[in-house]
Design a protein around this nucleic acid. Structure first.
Lengths: 223, 223
DNA sequence: TGAGACCAATACATCGGAGGTCTGGCGGCG
DNA sequence: CGCCGCCAGACCTCCGATGTATTGGTCTCA
């Protein structure tokens, strides 16, 4: 195995084993390089790779630290990966989302705080009757994120966040706004909110399914 | 932004825009470095980072190539990330799996080929009445992977594969084998197979739910 | 005495070059 | 025609030096 790959494994092992804990500072480049028995350049490649997927956080002039390792942070790299997929696999991502989103919405029905529901409704109200594409995308993203956060599962939340990345979403919306789907989507958002207020998990699940499925269907007919 | 990060974005952009397609070979280090306006060392850091998440494939003595970009390949990096999580978040990953696995099993019920079912049953038969821990883990992993592949959604398949990574699974099994859960698990596997043979999606979904939930419950009571 | 500016130490960022190693292809030899 | 060794190309690793951002202490001034 190449020295750099070995360094990646060694650093990973140090973190997994607990020798390095979240927030800990790594020895400085030169020391760590000597410790692992390689040059600074090679070590830097390892550190950079781990930095890309948010395992490490390098701060110039300060040092290199282990991140919080929150699922949210680590799965953020997922959206980077999703960006590489073209339209032909978007449907598969959307199918996964159609599984997760209703489940998350149903989970949220029994535990999301009323204040959060109020906040979400307020944001829907703030959206005018003729929102721009950018506003719609932002609103949609925020709406779903708010609900999924209400599920109380941060892994689920981050996963959906990554799957519904800006790129995918934007691609979908770009054409979707040409149709009358805008008002229908907003109506579905309202329906989901109502179901959540009623603490009706099954209704919430159904509305979420309908919501995602309608996007999926439109996309399938277009591609 | 640092030159290396910029290089990562530039390379990503080249791939997403289609300038570089799967399987394409990148210009050699020195040329690409000159083209992007940075040193080879910095470029190497960028390439190494993209290589870690399976976007690029560097072959010593040959060149650097764009991978197939299959969802399967890219989501493989997910298991690397999952490895960093400790027991306290395993439950959240398992909860996500409890959502996805039944759905995938139900999808498989209507489309998995009979030959695949035969193969899976054959593997269960090959497992003796007193399998070792390693055999059990391997069998369990292979069984679920075979079924999920039958769902026909490669994204879903890779996602579950990553979530049920060897580490997580091994941790769970290590203690689980102490109980009588072994025979129960094997029995559940048989039941899932039967439901799939009957093309009974609902039964398959239910058995998969029971299967994952039992592991989750045991884990919850142990932690 | 307290606040703000200055400065030096620290640590990462970037660079260019040199030597090593592996791969694949070309040509010679049997 | 097939096998084997040579060789050019490309990545691997390392070194040493310079640039740059942050930090924290110190010094000066009000």
């Amino acid at each position: 195995m190449a020295v750099t790959d070995e360094a990646i494994e060694r650093i990973k092992e140090m973190i997994v084993s607990g020798a390095l804990r979240p927030g800990d500072r790594l020895p400085k480049e030169s020391e760590l390089a000597a410790e692992l028995g390689l040059s600074r350049n090679s070590l830097r490649e390892a550190v950079r790779a781990l930095s890309l997927i948010r395992i490490l956080d390098v701060r110039q002039g300060d040092g290199t630290y282990v991140t919080s390792l929150d699922p949210q942070l680590l799965l953020e790299a997922l959206s980077f990966v999703v960006d590489f997929h073209r339209d032909d696999t978007v449907l598969e991502f959307l199918a996964v989302r159609r599984i997760l989103e209703p489940a998350a919405t149903a989970m949220a029905a029994v535990r999301i705080p009323v204040e959060e529901l109020d906040a979400l409704e307020g944001k829907l109200d703030a959206l005018g009757p003729q929102p721009s594409v950018e506003e719609l995308v932002a609103s949609d993203l925020e709406f779903h994120r708010g609900i999924v956060q209400g599920s109380g599962n941060s892994v689920l939340c981050s996963l959906l966040d990554g799957l519904s990345g800006p790129t995918t979403r934007a691609r979908v919306w770009r054409g979707l706004t040409q149709e009358d789907a805008v008002s229908r989507t907003l109506h579905e958002h309202r329906a989901i909110l109502t179901a959540l207020r009623d603490r009706d998990a099954e209704a919430a699940r159904s509305w979420a399914t309908v919501h995602v499925a309608s996007v999926e269907q439109w996309l399938r007919s277009t591609l």
